[in-house]
Amino acid sequence: MMQWLYKLGSPRHFYEMTTGFLPWLAGATFLLLGIGLVWGLGFAPPDYQMGDNFRIIYIHVPTATGAIWIYAMMAAMAAMHLVWNLKVADMVAKSCGIVGTSFCAIALFTGAFWGKPTWGTYWIWDAKLTSFLILLFVYIGVMALRSAFDSETSASKAASVLTLVGVVNLPIIYYAAVWWNTLHQGPSVLGDRDASANPPEIWIPAFFSGFGLIGLLFLIVILHTRNEILYRERRAQWVQELLTREPIHA
């Protein structure tokens, strides 16, 4: 296990080990996402109050949850980079930042368009929405800080430290609706209360779209990390060999 992790920490091994794994991940991702979205957006029964508007949760909930968890992953990578000086960890963290920002933005937009017909407003400055908006700003801040340095070493150190500071926001987002009163509802509970609310025909498509989006997240993170590896290791012999051996299609 330790050796496997150690190997994954080397850019070259990360690149080689993900090569064979990628098509499987991509296949599973698009299958899950396809089933989840077609089922959720097309066939799941409309909610008794919100009608078809509620279908937006099949995108909103996984992207919002995803944005929080990618941040946690980015922070774990940042800590590993700071402690063990792992280059790959920093590259994964950089990739996480890009996907996380997009997920965050998607969650905010879908939430706003759900909020207008449901609540009667696109936006309210409640604790849940505000802390989530701060998450987007932290994501953008980490990216901006990273690109503000000329030296790659200083850039990744600074970005890692800021990432760790931002971790404190995660429990605040998650528990905002519990700690304070907010317009945003709390997290849904499945299989609770004699199963009358959130029945299987509503949450099973969410399960598919959720795992599909998690797959998509990992797919983009891995693809971006591979590009980052090729770029940062461009002077290494194995990259040179790889690029000359494989025909490049324009």
Partner: peptide
């Protein structure tokens, strides 16, 4: 503003 709870049903 209407507040929605965390339950969705058909």
């Amino acid at each position: 503003l209407a507040k929605h709870d965390e339950n969705y049903m058909s």
